[in-house]
Each structure stands twice: as C-alpha cells, then as structure tokens.
Design a protein around this nucleic acid. Structure first.
Lengths: 347, 347
DNA sequence: ACCTCCAATGTCAGCGCTAACATCGCTAGT
DNA sequence: ACTAGCGATGTTAGCGCTGACATTGGAGGT
C-alpha cells in the first residue's frame, strides 16, 4: 500500500476545457469562468485575450458541469398539451423566443392533457435542475402537485387563470371571452343566439365561455340557446350538423356562437351548401382565430385568445423571478391577459 | 498549516441524493445508481427495497450530475426555423413524442431561417452534451458546419434531402412534389398551367417545386407559365393579386399551381369575388395542406409534405444511432419520404 | 508614511453522479 | 478439494465547473 495507485486513464476524449483556455492565456480557470458569467469582473485586457483564446481553441463551455457546480441552469421546462395544434403553438413560440433572447433554453414536452404524462415530464425535467418550470392549466395529478410544491424553483401555470391558486399564473378568463362574444352579437342586433359546442371533447373551458355568454344575454333579457351535436363526430362535421339542424327549426337562431373556429368553419360550409346568406340569414362566430378564419368566405368573426402573449408574458415572469431581467415591483403573481375581438364578415 | 481547514459549509440545501437513498437501504451509492441505469444488474430483492426507499424519500435523480460523470445525456437538441407555423409544428410534435416514448428529452430552439441564430442555438445545445442534434435543412453558417463536424454525436438534417451530404438526412425532394402536382393537373386535362410564387420570400424550396413542375410539363410538350406578384406583400394578398392579374390575360391559364396554400387561399378568394367558377374557369392547387385547405370553398387540392413522418423518422434514426432501439442494419443515412397528393374540389 | 478600501485574480474544495477496477461469495467443472 | 468463472456489490477517483474565501496591488485619505 506504499505507492499511490497509478493514475487512471481519462474517460473523456480530448474535449477542450476551461483549463485549456486558462493555460493558453496564462490565467486561472476561474478567470475564464468569470469571462463567461460575469464579464464585468474581468479587466478589459484579459477579456480581450480570453475572447481570442476561446475562439481560437473553439471552446464550448460545458453547461452540464457548470450547472452541477452552481446548482443552477439556464434551462426552463415547459409541459403543454400539444405542440402542433392551432392553440398552443404560438404560446410555445413566444415563450421560446423570449427565453432565447435572454440566453435560456427550452426543454419541451407534450402531455396530450394526460396528468400522468405531465407528471412524468415534470419529474424528468426536475432532474435537470431547471431554472423554472411552466405547466399548462391548474389541473395536475397528485404527484405533480407534490413535485411542484416541494421544489423551490419558480413555477408558472399558463392558460388558466385561477386567482386562488399559489403559483404565478398567466392566462385569461374564458368567461370573459364569452361575454365579449355576446356583447358583440348584441351590438350587431342579433337576438336569437345559439351556442354550439362539441359534446365529445371534454372541453371545460368552452363551458366557461358559454356561461359568460349566457349571463350577458340574461342581463339583456334574452336566453341563450344551447346546442350540442351528436357526440363523437369530428369538429368540422359537428359544426355542419349543428348548422343544418338549427336552420331547420321553426324559430331558427339569427346568430350562432360556435365553441371554436373548427366548428364554425363546418357551420359556415354547411350554410353555403344550403344557400344561406351569412350573416344575412344567420351570423356565425367562432373562438380561437385559427389561421384559416380570415380565409373563409365569408371571413369568420371570432375571438382571439392571447396565445402569443401568454408565452411571452410567462417567459418574462420566469426571467424576472430568476433576476435575469429587472422588475421594480415584486414579480406579479396574477397576470390576466385579454382576448381580442376580431370582427370580420360573418357577423 | 498544521490542522486542516475546517469543512466549508455545503452550498446546496437539503437535496436528497443517491447517497441518502443508499444509506437508507444500506447499500452503496453505486448500487442505487445501477437501479436506475441498469436495473437488470441489481438483484431482485435490492431492486424492491431500493424502489421503496426512492419513493419514500421522493428522490429525483440528478441528471446533471449523471451527465457530467458519464459524459452522456438523454437530451436531444432540435433547431427549427419556427415553431408555430403550419409547416414545422407537426414535425416537432412527432419528434418530441417519439423521443419521449424512449425516455429522451427535447431541447428546442427556433432560428427563423437565420444561420446566426441557428449557430448560437447549436452552440448552446452542444454545451449540454446532448445525445444528438437535429437541424433543419442543409444550409448552415460556417461556424455551425464546424461545430457539427467536430462533434461526435449523431447529427440529423431534416426536411431537405441532399444525397451528397454527410449526416443522416430525413426529408423529401421538393422537385418530386412539383412533379406530383404537375402530373395531377395534366391528368385532369389542364394544359395552360401557371406557377405563382411569392417573390418576397427567399423560399428556395419553392423553386425546386417549380422546376419539377416545369420539367414534367416540358415532357408533355407544354411550357410552365411563371408568375410572381409584386414583392413585399403578404402571401394572402399576393395570391389574390396573382389571380386577378392572371385572369385578365387574354390567354388566361386554366390551372394555377401556387407555391403554398396561403397563396392559393388568396387566389381562391379572389376568384370567388370575381365570380369565377373553380375549377371550371380555372383550377387551383396549393402546397402544404395547411389546416384550412379542406375548409375553403371549394376545398383546396394540394400536396401534403410528410411533416409528421419527418419528425418521427428523425427521432427513430437518432434513437437507433444511440443504440436505444434496435436496428438490424446500420442506421439508414438517407431517408427520403414521400409527399402525398390531396385531391379536393379545386382541381 | 501608513492605513483603508476596492477591484482583479487566485486557491481550494466540492457539486452528485458514474466508469473502471476490485472484491466477495457462490456455483460448477475437473 | 481446488480453482476458474460469473454475477452482485463496493471502492476510488474523477467529470468540468463555480462558490466561498484569500490574496495582491494600487488608488485615495489622513
């Protein structure tokens, strides 16, 4: 046991490290580290020389090692129901871009509204010591709630807006969207207003919109006519069916508010095929402002949710919580964004 | 200098570590590590006891430390032009979902077609020692090329398909899409065919499609009529302008192939307003099969690129390269997927 | 001349985990 | 009985970086 065991062979190949750069410049590794993380604490001259050595050597900082040492990372995890749908894509885009502008990375997973998938994504993300975590809506599995409660990193819930909950929230009230739609239809002089939702989808937020609409009509002394097409059909077909059925009624509605733009598009098409004039015979309104809304004939009046804004605002709140960008006041916990009424030809 | 300096205080709070679990069970840390990474090398009994301790303590493995130690991670980086557009969203979705099914995470950034932004994303990603990297198309900055060439992790290029390049590629030939469109129009009996592209966008792939179309017409003894609306206008407006201008020609075309569905939708709308019958007076075809294509009136014939398939296939190739899933043969380097002709009413 | 103070830089000890190697106990072959 | 061989587990030494603290040297005050 006298002589020390011979040095083991290195495991990693010739990766260029901080030390290589430091040696080249003739400073300590820590100074090079500062060059990346606190450049203002390095003298101008060294800053210059280190910068040159870095690009000469093609050094790429090992963020994994840095995160381990500092117990911090510039990764932010986001779990969202789906990526490719018309709804969330721009939220992701806004979030990702805003993060990137401030040197943070996005770790993304989709849950398809499954609390289990959400939990497994959150668990995996937590292993990366992310700087923050963003989840969609306030409905989580018990396990997720526990994980989120125990962590001390900032957590942001998006899309939903539930004032009584603890974490930072960025979203809007679907109820308000319903009110907005109802007011618009009333202003235009419509009185016999129907609400069409696809009963198949467990879309609870649509119910909030319907309630907002119904309440507004009630204040005006009117009653909302609720209609759900037969379960199980695709939104487009369901919208068509709804339009056909409603138009056969003796006291048919003079305006239909569809739960989303897909339904509305189906309705619009059915109306065309039936030879109805829109909005003359019946006004049509949707929700979502999907890309095609302005391309329909007639173009579709709808409510545009603040998708992009939610992504951007969520990123800002995250960055503020992390102290990456300044806030005068403490980080705003509740962030209620507004939907936007998009008036087009169909109303 | 006689006595050793007193132990420094710990920097991290009471995070639960592998050692905590190991102590609780009465084994070494390494055995717990094996429990997570090579469960088959741990005896059944220990597997059981460790599993219980893990959930009792609520232990979440620190992937950062693990990656540093093993110089490997289960993160895959993807750089894509944009997230929210109609084109790439489902590629991301397919990629992310396939990765997730095999326990890998997606690190995502968008480049907006800017080689500089792409390079900075690639650089940041490389700092995370990702398991693999996916970039869009073969056009990169010099710096990116260098970074990709020097790394030894698998690199996959998607969307474009350039047989002579080195990395794994998953994509399709835009030229073929043009051929496919031309054949369809010829079969339908159209002879005076125009191609409309938005000159504003530096959309080189559209040129490939045009070339494929032109070649096919030439084989049939016909010539493609190329038209570019005035620069700088939005696709929708540009499509409208193209339709109006082309229809004023004395020998007007009997079919128009638009460079994408947005242009085509504008064209369709203009035709409606001009009182033209589609496809009677003029057939209209697009490219992309955006969500609205089937909701237009008439519904739009178009070419559907294999967006989802590209994402899924890219993920499979990545996982194969990593040895996560089996391949009999060596990983296929060139993966040419097919577009799909979507015949609807407009032709 | 002396001291204080601050900015610039360095030393040292880990962060939590895993690769490589060592060891232990047992089965099986001779 | 003896040992080769194997599966299960332990020991050691980092992975590349950064936090806390130490040190240095010069500006500025008295």
């Amino acid at each position: 046991m006298s002589d020390p065991s011979p040095p083991r062979k290195r495991r990693t190949a010739g990766r260029i490290t901080l030390n290589d750069v430091a040696r080249q410049v003739g400073v300590s590794a820590l100074t090079v580290s500062r060059f990346f993380n606190h450049p203002e604490r390095v003298s101008e001259e060294l800053r210059h020389r280190i910068g040159e050595a870095v690009s000469a050597l093609g050094y790429v900082p090992n963020l994994v090692a840095g995160s381990l040492a500092s117990a911090r990372s510039r990764i932010v995890g986001m779990v969202i129901p789906n990526i490719s749908g018309p709804i969330f894509a721009s939220t992701i885009q806004g979030f990702s871009d805003t993060l990137a502008r401030h040197g943070h990375q996005l770790l993304l997973a989709s849950s398809y509204f499954s609390p289990e998938q959400e939990e497994s994504a959150v668990r995996a993300f937590l292993g990366w010591s992310p700087a923050a975590l963003v989840v969609t809506s306030h409905f989580h599995s018990e396990g997720t709630e526990k994980l989120l409660a125990e962590t001390d990193i900032p957590v942001v819930e998006i899309w939903d807006y539930q004032p009584e909950r603890a974490p930072i929230q960025v979203g809007f009230l679907h109820y308000d969207a319903g009110v907005m739609a109802a007011r618009h239809l009333l202003e235009r002089g419509y009185r016999r207003i129907a609400f069409v939702q696809n009963s198949a989808a467990g879309d609870f937020s649509a119910l909030d919109r319907r309630d907002g609409c119904a309440a507004t009509l009630r204040d005006a002394g009117l009653e909302l006519w609720s209609f759900a097409p037969s379960a199980g059909s695709a939104p487009f077909e369901a919208g068509r069916e709804a339009m056909e059925r409603l138009m056969q009624e003796t006291h048919r509605p003079d305006a239909i508010l569809f739960a989303n733009d897909n339904l509305a598009a189906g309705g619009l098409l059915a109306a065309q095929r039936m030879g109805l004039r829109i909005p003359g015979d019946c006004a049509v309104m949707g929700f979502g402002d999907y890309a095609f809304a302005e391309m329909l004939l007639p173009s579709l009046s709808t409510i545009r949710p603040p998708s992009l804004g939610i992504g951007e605002t969520a990123a800002l709140r995250v960055l503020e919580s992390l102290g990456v960008i300044a806030t005068e006041a403490p980080v705003q916990r509740l962030n209620r964004l507004e939907c936007q009424l998009v008036e087009r030809e169909s109303t």
